[in-house]
Computed example of a mutant assay.
Amino acid sequence: MAQDAPATIEIRHTTSADGTKIGWRRLGTGPAIVVTHGAIATGEQWLPVARALADEHTMLLLDRRGRGLSGDAEGYDLGTEMADLEAILAVAGPGATLLGHSYGAITAAATVAAGADVSALMLYEPPLPVNGPLVGTTIAPLAAAVAAGENERALSIMLTDIVHTPEADVDALRQTSMWAEMVALAPTLEREMRVVDGLAGDLDRFTTIRQPTLLLLGSQTAQHHVDATRFLIEHLPHATLVELPGQEHFAQATAPTLVADTVRSFLRRA
């Protein structure tokens, strides 16, 4: 039997509240899922998951501002990212689902907590600073590397000193094609890490979410992701926790079929 042809990918753009052009990839048919990615990434990283869901859902893979298909602006805070998401959700239409990964999960949760019209929310390991600032004094060498244009050093600081990736894993990552892509995106790290640490005294904003919420957690992930997810499961009345066996923080790349099946199952129940 012949296999179905891959879903056609369309490139679309809209304008955010501050005039910044925001781009995304669109594929599939059915109820809309808007995906917002994490740091040092683009929406393209989620294409394997999107292709697996495209037979049942219209997938909108956002490129967050400052990378890929999207423009940027001088002013930046969490509110600008929330406005970007609101602009995409307006295109997706009423009843869309929002899926966020890592830093993108923070922006997704903040947008929904502020009243965005979504039918359901899915969060994959938002690095909420539930135990105090996540970056702390490490922001200084990170900022210095970004200011000096030393993107590779900035990325190494992020991976080794902030998210505590084992050195062997960092060395392995350097040998992949992803490394150059991540290095190119390193200048966006400082501003995003400042936002993360700035939330240390503002976590109550996330406890107002009332939509059905799927919390994805890798069984082998870092402890700060476990703690942040535990905080959400304890405070959100309609949250469902699903552990991804054998996975860490990037199951969308290492186990896309597992992520897609988990999303599909949750949305069918929700």
Rank of each mutant, 00 (worst) to 15 (best):
D4L: 13
A7R: 03
A7W: 11
T8L: 13
T15A: 03
D18S: 08
T20Y: 02
I22L: 08
R25L: 13
R26G: 14
G28L: 05
G38R: 03
V49Y: 01
R51P: 07
L53A: 01
A54L: 05
L61Q: 01
L62E: 08
L62C: 14
D77A: 07
L78H: 01
M82K: 08
E86T: 13
A92H: 01
S102I: 13
T111M: 03
A114S: 08
A116P: 08
S119W: 02
E125A: 11
V135P: 01
I139K: 00
I139M: 07
G149Q: 06
E150C: 10
E150Q: 13
N151L: 06
S156G: 15
T160M: 03
T165C: 02
E167N: 10
R174V: 13
L189W: 05
V196D: 00
A200C: 06
T208C: 09
L216F: 07
G218D: 04
A222G: 14
Q223M: 10
H224Y: 02
T229S: 02
F231M: 14
I233D: 08
H238I: 15
A239S: 12
L241A: 02
V242W: 06
Q247T: 13
Q247V: 12
Q247G: 06
T257A: 13
A260D: 06
A260H: 01
D261T: 12
A270V: 15
